[in-house]
């Protein structure tokens, strides 16, 4: 089994792995922008349509979450098909929590048949955080093994069992998630390298608020040669309020939110009457968007960062002003 970084895993304009819009933009050396759409907890197509209308044209592709936080929602592949039909490219999230290797491979074949190319491989949030805490989790494979399996389906035309995929493997642009901030911090750049070895073509990181720590992480990752084979999209997320910033600092594992950011969010509502909730919310959200734009400007300068992944959770309206003000609109067109 290959345990070294393989340069042939690097996507290039002349040798695309899947030919998705996201892949073509990264291969062309353009600064990529991805967003995120959480499918509804029902089968309401209108929710998907509304979110697509807020993202389309402002992102190169949109992640479709897969029962995130262990809560049952419309399937990522089902929602992904709807999104393709609306003219937006999906990045299908695929967790190891809910499927064994049979289901994963058959879902991938089904997704590929519908034109889905980008797949983000995740372990999945533990079911104890969701609305079915008594569910059995699967974890037949972990995310590394999932990436390797998809890579072998694509490049070797074979199923995980070694049997040939008659007619050829599915064209996939394989993604991974990375949390630069979780303990043990020393291990995180090595873990990113391991994901690149396992088959990741692109990586989206956890939301970054602590820019200094992220820069250290990227420095080590670049030194390890990781960014020579994998495109790193830095995660950003606009804060809605100081309360949200404190919540993320205190409750999201591995998330650090510097005091300076929390103070800026607190200062944004200074002088506005606590009675005027509407004005406080508007001021707070405007500051959240400003901070996000400043962070993107900084991230553009960090060596090895190939783009950004914007997680505006249940606040898709923020995407347009962020992308526009960060000088990332209009999005480049890279013809296939």
């Amino acid at each position: 089994m290959t345990q070294q970084l393989a340069t042939e895993n690097k996507t290039t304009e002349s040798e695309l792995k899947a030919g998705s819009n996201l892949e073509r933009i990264l291969a062309a050396g353009q600064f990529a922008v991805t967003g995120e759409i959480g499918p509804p907890k029902n089968f309401d197509v209108e929710v998907i349509h509304r979110k697509v209308s807020l993202l389309k044209g402002y992102v190169d592709a949109a992640n479709i979450t897969d029962n995130q936080t262990g809560i049952v929602r419309m399937s990522s592949i089902g929602a992904g098909i709807l999104i393709i039909n609306q003219g937006l490219e999906p990045v299908i999230q695929l967790t190891c929590r809910d499927r064994n290797r049979l289901a994963m491979q058959s879902d991938i074949l089904g997704a590929a048949a519908h034109g889905i190319k980008n797949v983000l491989c995740l372990s999945g949030d533990h079911q104890s955080f969701g609305n079915h805490p008594g569910a059995k989790n699967v974890h037949d494979l972990d995310s590394m093994q999932l990436m390797r399996m998809l890579q072998e389906m694509r490049d070797k035309n074979q199923f995980q069992c070694g049997e040939e995929i008659a007619g050829g493997g599915p064209p996939l642009f394989i993604g991974a998630a990375a949390n630069p901030f979780a303990d043990p911090v020393e291990l995180r750049p090595l873990r990113l390298k391991k994901k690149a070895i396992a088959g990741a073509n692109f990586v989206q990181t956890q939301i970054i608020y602590d820019m200094d720590r992220f820069k250290q992480y990227m420095k080590k990752s670049v030194d390890l040669g990781v960014t020579e084979t994998v495109s790193v999209l830095a995660g950003v997320g606009p804060l809605k309020s100081a309360g949200m910033a404190r919540y993320m600092r205190d409750n999201v594992p591995g998330m650090t939110v510097p005091d300076e950011i929390i103070e800026r969010m607190e200062d944004a509502v200074q002088g506005i009457s606590s009675e005027d909730k509407k004005a406080r919310m508007a001021a707070s959200r405007a500051e959240g968007i400003r901070i996000c734009i400043e962070q993107i400007e900084q991230l553009k300068e960090v060596e090895g960062v190939a783009g950004i992944h914007i997680m505006a959770i249940e606040w898709e309206e923020a995407i347009k002003p962020i992308v526009t003000s960060a000088g990332l609109y209009p999005r480049p067109v890279c013809d296939s």
Partner: peptide, 21 residues
């Protein structure tokens, strides 16, 4: 490991090496 990872850790390790679950 609640996720039975064979190539861990996941991103949910809290400060001091506690499990998020």
């Amino acid at each position: 490991c609640p996720k039975q990872l064979m190539n861990g850790p996941c991103g949910g390790t809290d400060q001091g090496g506690r499990c998020e679950v």
